[in-house]
Simulated assay, not measured.
Amino acid sequence: MYFYANLNLSKEKDEISKEILNCSLNGKKRIDVVSMFYNSSDILLETIIAYANEKKNILYITNEDVRKIDIIYFINNFSNLGKYVHTSGSNYSSVNEHLYICNHESALGLQEKFDLVIYNEIRNFPKYNKQQIKKILLKMCSVEGTAIAFSVENILSEGTTIIFPLTNNKIPIIEPRIITTRINLNIDIPLVVYEYLNWSIISNRKVIIFTPDAEKAEALFKYLSNLKEKLSEDLFLYISKKSDASIPRVFMNKDKGIIVTNDFEESYLEFHAVDVIVYFADNIKFTHKQLLYLSSKVGRYENIQRGEAIFLANVETTQMDKAQNIARKFNKKAWEKGLLNI
């Protein structure tokens, strides 16, 4: 018998946790749990333990960094299921008697069918579209099995939808601002963005500027380097899989500064008092979920200071609009339910 210890969930989370459990045990075979990026997976633990106690086979799919698989933390600290969990291989698959945890690519290679399949997309940079996630959920589910999608949008769209519109700090989600300009962003920055950067530095905040590729990051960093005396001497460039791995940590420990990067998957650093600019946000590389994930770094660890997220582009795209609208809908739903601490 596996036990489920007291997680001390908030009232709102406890209600969601029990709603997921009741739906899954009462014949609901397709469940969408819709929530914001970076929310914890603690609301899923009760359901996982219940299925394990019934000796059901469980598949949990997540693309999180192996060092920060959220559900393993809760399993190890709030249940006795953890003593059966171990990590194996570079694909960071974890397995025990009833529970198998792996990433999307590893799941594609599995032949077994599972009684419960959970796909958690909100704890990492989203790489897969709705159709890809739905396909793997249904593929891995047994005939009488239950599929749960944990995402910022409906994935299965054919059963029960449970909306949890809160962030862990119960403050409104930052709704990204869209700024368009005719300026060639490859060689210049708009005055409004310069003023925004200046305001952030004066306010002792950090700014993360995301670009779609290394070439654009290097060009922007070179341009901003000419403005270091006016903006900040603490200006950093971090190119994924190329730059010194210590650069993000050095930046994190600064009181203020600017970092230009093409590293979207950073998930292990805690940036307090941070603002975000997605440069070239109209680039076809960015999906609405990816844009929302990047902008959601703002406010992730904050309760009082309210940062900003900006999508900077030459044209406003459907993907930018969709990202903005998702954040707005979460705030509207949380406000209507009286869930915000404001």
Results as ranks from 00 to 15, higher is better:
L9C: 08
C23T: 05
L25A: 11
S35C: 14
E46N: 04
T47M: 01
I49G: 00
I49Q: 02
K55N: 15
I58A: 10
I61Q: 04
N63S: 12
E64L: 08
K68W: 01
N76T: 06
S79D: 01
L81T: 00
S90T: 05
Y92L: 07
N96W: 03
E97G: 07
I101S: 03
C102S: 11
L108H: 04
L110M: 15
I118F: 13
P126E: 00
T146Y: 01
A147S: 15
A149Y: 08
I155G: 02
I155T: 08
G159L: 13
T161I: 11
T161E: 14
L166G: 02
I174F: 01
I178R: 01
T180I: 08
N186D: 08
P190G: 09
L191G: 02
V192I: 13
Y196F: 13
F210P: 00
A214D: 09
A214W: 08
A214L: 03
Y223V: 06
Y223M: 14
L224K: 09
K228N: 08
L237D: 06
K242F: 12
V250Y: 12
M252C: 11
K254M: 11
G257M: 04
I259H: 10
V260I: 15
T261L: 10
E266Q: 15
F280M: 14
S295L: 09
K297A: 01
G299R: 06
E316T: 07
Q319G: 11
Q319K: 13
M320P: 08
Q324I: 10
I326G: 03
N331C: 12
K333L: 12
A334G: 13
